[in-house]
Amino acid sequence: MSGIFNKALMVHLGLIVVLLALHFILPAYHHVSLARIMVLAVYALGFNLLFGYTGLLSLGHALFFAAGLYGAGLSMQFFQWTAGPGFVFGLFCAIAVATLIGMLALRTVGVSFMIVTMMFAQVGYLLILYYNEYTRGDEGFVILRELRVLGPLDLSAEDIRYLVALALLAAAILIKLALVRSPTGRILIAIRENEERTRMLGYDPFRYKLMAMVISGAFAGAAGAAYGILFGYVGASFASIQYSILPLLYVLMGGAGVVLGPLLGTIAMFYLIDIASGMTSAYLFFVGLALVFLILVAPKGLLGTVRERWAPWLP
């Protein structure tokens, strides 16, 4: 058992080292793109924890992303906070929102959960528009560059941005790995497989599902806060339904219930759009075709299929 776990740990640590190495060798364009991808991957990693491991499909995760984004952005704008306190406050907002929504939405199951989370996220989106006096609504606002600093680090510089994004992703990967390998993680998986049986074994599924929801929301909020701080923009489009569907797409493409699946899915989707839009103006057509084709070839997602066929030890 421990041999297998160590192998898994080596793979994940190895990947982080590879991403660090890429910092020194990637061509500039892929370097900036990967920085953004890593932040979004944190969002998808958190989504996977809830969907892939606990079996809860939320269509409202943009709400948590936006809570982090706006928590950081608004506090920095109104209190002149720098990135550190801004990030922490964004994270706190996301956790608070996820706890509240979790307590309400987890009364429902299955498709009802999906719809309820979607509707709460819609409420969040509309609230951003409604309080436009502070948020500037759909147009959003720019976070002052002077505030986007972490101690001596200028977070708007390309190289520092990459390293900060990598640090965030590494933390997310390691936390998630530790979590899914812990007894708690196994209970989450047990809930996914059979909630009733888990209950009969003496665990309170609600408590564990709420925990998964809050951690997942915290990941989303951390990604949102980091996105605003690193790229300098806060806007309502990030709270829209499209941004709730995106992590689902990333996760399903990369492989639900595989720790690294969301990262691979995020990378694949970014380059799919980037490359297809370079070849034709009708690129969404090919993005759509590629999605259909990928899912036909690998119905469990890219890494999910790899695990199924070649690497059953992959967590």
Binding site: D138, G140, I143, R145, S156, F231, G232, Y233, G235, S237
Partner: peptide, 14 residues
């Protein structure tokens, strides 16, 4: 569109 301008402007400056 304004939101695209505002979202892109920080990157153009950087």
């Amino acid at each position: 569109f304004s939101h695209v301008v505002i979202g892109s402007a920080p990157r153009a400056g950087e």
